[in-house]
Design a protein around this nucleic acid. Structure first.
Lengths: 201, 201
DNA sequence: TTATATAGACAGACCGGTCTATCTAGACAA
DNA sequence: TTGTCTAGATAGACCGGTCTGTCTATATAA
């Protein structure tokens, strides 16, 4: 339904919305503010998206793609040779993200945009909630992909477990300002990985 | 500043607000709706609380106390004899909560109210954010208390780690509907506990 | 009398969304 | 080169509602 034609105004809109939603949340950020910051007319928004909710869905979709691309790039550049170390490098990426490092995924850290989205739109019927869920699942799938070569009985299960650690560390960083949470979680991750596979030589 | 005198109207207000915030979020739930549901006049709200934000803070405070009391009670009733098993029983409590079991902590599961609060009020300056942080820290402290007897090098650190697992499992249950996440996290928790202490005889 | 409650009007800002009217840039044809 | 048509952008008025918060006036009960 939504027009998918690319256009500079549309891009500016989505990028500005991404930034403002990250800073202030979804309900608290009005479209007037987004339009003013993006320098875009209201009709341009509604010619590109049926509603604010659809804009949010698009923001989540793009952000998810960008974040996962950044994460893959990070793992590759880490030069980790083993599946174990590639999985652990994810936690280093997370630490950079939490600490707003210059090599981070591009937004000042305000917690996970998907968690916040599913929190603000808690009903599972909401398209926003579903978009958040899809992006979260995609990260788990990425972890499962990294874990697939591991000599553990159930890589899928391990990926889910590591996902909990990552998620929890991000929440701790947001709510309690625990910017060391990723490093801490990394230690747990190593234990969980090694518990299911022969100890590295 | 806030009047702390108990009154039936005030209690009804806080309880109704707790329920509605849990269902729909903080920004999305207007005070008129709360007042109508509670059967309370608007001036009663503003005689008891300077603002909606202060009402939210009080909701979080009470909910935190109630939740932790429920959790302590659960652990006690589990009859677990060891620190290890008491810690693991927390994950059973969590599973009941996620699955809206009758013995749960009293609200239909919509994710953690504190995580959602710090997500909707992401600035660390916000009193709401700080209230959420305090309650989250109190849960970690409770875990640390349960872990204090454990023969591990750093019970405090272990509590933090288990906290990540719990947090991540709750997020997974909310965003992806993973209502089995607590049982899964429990397995990881056992590994982490045992990795830091002599295996039980 | 004093404190607490009620109902409900009211203010002023802001919400998402619609609408009209105008401008500009590019494609195309003469 | 010039004129025309079209798509997409602009500004901004406007709509009905909802938002938080204030106010007055009244009732009730210790």
């Amino acid at each position: 339904m939504t027009a998918e034609r690319p256009s500079p105004a549309r891009d500016r809109l989505v990028e500005t919305a991404t930034r403002l939603f990250n800073e202030g949340g979804y309900h608290a950020t009005g479209i007037d503010r987004i339009l003013a910051d993006a320098g875009v007319a209201k009709m341009t928004l509604y010619n590109n998206f049926p509603s604010k909710d659809d804009l949010i869905v698009e923001v989540l979709r793009r952000r998810g793609e960008g974040f996962r691309a950044w994460l893959r790039e990070w793992v590759t550049r880490s030069g980790a040779a083993s599946s174990r170390d590639r999985l652990l490098s994810v936690f280093d990426a997370q630490a950079v993200w939490h600490q707003n490092g210059p090599a981070g995924p591009g937004l000042p850290f305000r917690g996970c945009v998907f968690v916040r989205a599913s929190g603000e739109y808690p009903s599972g019927d909401s398209a926003i909630h579903q978009a958040a869920a899809a992006n979260k699942q995609a990260v788990i799938d990425l972890l499962a992909e990294l874990a697939s070569d591991l000599a553990v009985p159930d890589p899928q299960d391990l990926a889910e477990q590591l996902g909990y650690l990552i998620e929890g560390a991000t929440v701790a960083a947001l709510t309690r300002g625990r910017t060391d949470s990723a490093e801490r979680a990394k230690r747990s991750a190593a234990i969980l990985i090694d518990a299911g596979s022969p100890p590295p030589a």
